[in-house]
Every structure is written in C-alpha cells, then in structure tokens.
Design a binder for these strands. Structure first.
Lengths: 223, 223
DNA sequence: TATTTAGAAATTGTCGGACAATTTCTCCGT
DNA sequence: ACGGAGAAATTGTCCGACAATTTCTAAATA
C-alpha cells in the first residue's frame, strides 16, 4: 500500500531517482561508487526497467556516468570540470539573482525570500551538513522561483551543483571560506531590489567559492 | 545486421531519440502531436523499454512533456515560455561567445570557427530550412566547443533551442529579421579575440531574435 | 439537438523472464 | 609476480503480462 502510493506519486523510477540523490547527500553513495542494477532493484524493490529509467535520468543530469556494458558510477569531477562548472554557475546564479531583485515587489516574493534567508542563516550556525545543504538548496530554489524564469528553473537542476556539494563535503574550509556574510549580501541586494547589485553579489560569492575550491588538495578531485 | 550495428553504435534508445529529434526538424512530428509508445515501437522496430528510455531522455531535455498515464506530446511553448527561454539564451550565448573569443588563439580554434562560419553564411543564401538549421546548430556548437567549458557544452542541449527552431519554422520573418549580418558580427568579434565585444554581439543577436518573435501572431504559440 | 454518462478500447506503468554481448573476476600455468 | 583462459557477473534488449488510468464511443437523458 505504502509502496503503491509512493510509486503512484510519480512512479517507481522517481522513487529510485530520489532515493539515490538522497543517498548521495547522506553519504550512502560516494563518488566513484558503482551502481549495479540488480542491487538497486533489490534495495528499492522495483523492476529493472524502473531502475534503468532512474539511472538514465541521473545520467542526463550528470550525477552518474554510464558507458556501454559498464555499471553506472557516481561521477566525481576533475579540477577542470569543477572550474568549468563554477564559471557556469557564476553566470547562471548572477542571472537568477538579478531577476529575483527585479521582481522582489511582486506577489509574496519578499516574504518568500525573507523566510528562505532566515532558515538559511539559522542553519548556518549549526554544523549539520545535511540540514545546511537543504536550507541552501531551498534558498537558491526560492531565488530562482522569484525570478520567474521557468526555463532557468528547468535548467538549474541540470547543472552539477549536487555533485559539487557532495564531492567537497569533507572539506569544511570550502564552506567556511564562503559562508560568512555572503548569503546575507546576496539577500540584502535582492531585498533592495537592485538587479545589478544582486547579480554582482551572487557572482562574487561564486567566485569566492571557486577560489576556496582551488586551494583544495588534489585528493579532492578525480583524474 | 544493419539494425544490430546501429543499435550497438549507442543503443536502441539512441536510435529512437535521434529519430524523433530528426523527425522534428523534418516536420514529421509537430508540436502538440501525441507520441504513442506502440507506434514508436513499430516505427523504429525496437522494444517498448527502449522507446520509453528515449522518451524520458527527450522529456529531460524538454522536447516533449510527459504526465502520468498520458501519452507523451511534442511540447509547444507559450509566449511566456518563449520569452523566458530567450532571456536565458541571451545569457548563455553571451557567455559562450565571450569564452570563444578569449580562446580564439588556442589550437586550431580559429580555423574551426572560420569553417563553421563559412558554412553558415553559405547556407544562409539558400532557402532550405533543414540545411540552414544544421549549419546554425553546427556554428553554435563550434562556438561552445572553442570556449572549452564542458559544463556549458553539457547544458546547452538541455535548453529548448530545438523547440524554438521548430515552433517558428513557418515564420520566415523571424529568421529574416535576424540573419542579415548578425552571425557575421558575432564571428568578427570572436575572431578579433575581444571577449566583451563577442558577448555583446551575441546578446544583441538574441535580443533581436526575441523582438522578432514578439511580433508574431498568437497563433504561433501555445496556450 | 445538446449533454451526460456508462461501458469499451486504447494507452501507460510496471513487473518478470529470457538471452546475447560484453565486461569483470578468478584461478592456473609460467 | 604476471599474463591469459575460462567462469561469473553485468548490462542491453526484447517479449509477454496485467493493473491503473485515460480516452474514445455510443447509448440514455434532458
């Protein structure tokens, strides 16, 4: 029954898909790990077809890599790939922040971002990776939603942000070098309603993130 | 045998996937059309599982929309969706053009973009939608490749550009209001190696495209 | 005639089994 | 320790089946 309902919510593939993403954040799966279809079939108690569909969704979003006749594996990014991703995120997040600032007065937007920011700042003081990661994702999601560009909202999850988070979870220095004040600055600029300023704040933040990552040892990267 | 080889090239799902994208450009499939799994199974002579996998890939890239227990249908965008997409493409293409200009001197990059541009300008004088569409896609693809950002290259196909092309294929005004000189300007800026200029040229082009689309009648849009 | 509605048909969601193709593992001889 | 042949594991793909749901059809009703 429970399984039936969960499945109907958005299908067995969705269950597997979310299970794996969640498992990633929880550390159940780590970069480089093989994902054997038979195991997943057993773990999630669904047919192989559904597992396959979930895997191809994950591959489409870049979380895993698949090649013919080889097991899917959780991707881990090289230095170059990370640099590329950060550069892209700078552009995308800058765009998102600008849109959000420009539309801060519409509807309940101001309240939405207020709440998301409060939750984020609150989560910041705690030391729970999972809790903070959720709050941060929610903050960005809200920012994008307020911006009101549906295509941006569709594209954002297709970037490899999740992979980025997970790959460097062990290195607190990344987050710590970035956290203090950055999110606050982005929020302030958005609340102020000045698009250009919000874009700059978001870009600065991402650039600082990139710098922190650059200082990481080779062991943190693939290949 | 032939089928076997094609399948092994990158799998049956890939055959179906490419077949549908190609069919879109050829007009075999039009926005709003239902894609019934059984039909595709027959048309492409593959199992339903493979059809399903191809469909979910197409859905991930936004070309079709799927909801539970309902046939997949070729998406067609509303005015708002198109506006959002154009805004996103402006940012993305601007970024791509800037990167390309900055790396024009590396390797064989200059020759690559030279060739792609020549092919594009040549295709422009002809009046063959398919031929021109291919050349344009190749040009953009080259531009992105030269830029060297793999994440951008991964994301670009996930935008709904294909849908955009197809949806307005009947309205030459869109292309005509844009073509003359625009691609040339982008190319020149890239060849000059000035990132900022290339970004501006690309953005101007997309903005002009958006303006042309704005002038289209309601009949060209969904919903 | 237009509208509603019950039943039939079509379609999707999912599972299990099957088998070939390929990769990965294991063990043996050198 | 090393390389290679055979065994085991794993993926790629198809087929058939059946429940859940939507879509179509045609009769019943206002």
């Amino acid at each position: 029954m429970t399984k039936q309902q969960a499945a109907l919510a958005d299908g067995s593939p969705g269950v597997v898909y979310r299970g794996i993403v969640d498992g990633l954040y929880r550390g159940r799966y780590v970069p480089g790990q093989r994902l054997v279809e038979a195991d997943l079939t057993r773990d999630f108690d669904v047919g192989r077809g559904s597992v396959r569909e979930a895997l191809s969704r994950l591959a489409a979003e870049g979380l895993i890599s698949m090649s013919l006749h080889r097991s899917a594996i959780i991707r881990s990014m090289s230095r170059v790939e990370v640099r590329d991703l950060v550069a892209l995120l700078e552009v995308l997040n800058g765009f998102a922040a600008r849109l959000a600032a420009d539309r801060i007065e519409e509807g309940a937007n101001r309240k939405l971002i207020d709440d998301a920011c409060a939750t984020l700042l609150d989560a910041e003081v705690q030391r729970d990776f999972l809790h903070f990661a959720r709050a941060r994702n929610a903050f960005y999601k809200t920012m994008v939603a307020i911006g009101g560009n549906h295509e941006l909202a569709r594209i954002m999850p297709r970037t490899n942000v999740d992979l980025l988070r997970v790959q460097f979870r062990a290195y607190q220095t990344v987050d710590e070098g970035v956290r203090i004040g950055d999110y606050r600055a982005i929020y302030d600029a958005i609340a102020e309603g000045v698009g250009r300023k919000a874009e700059a704040a978001a870009k600065t933040h991402i650039r600082r993130l990139g710098d922190a990552i650059d200082r990481l040892p080779d062991a943190a990267f693939a290949g």
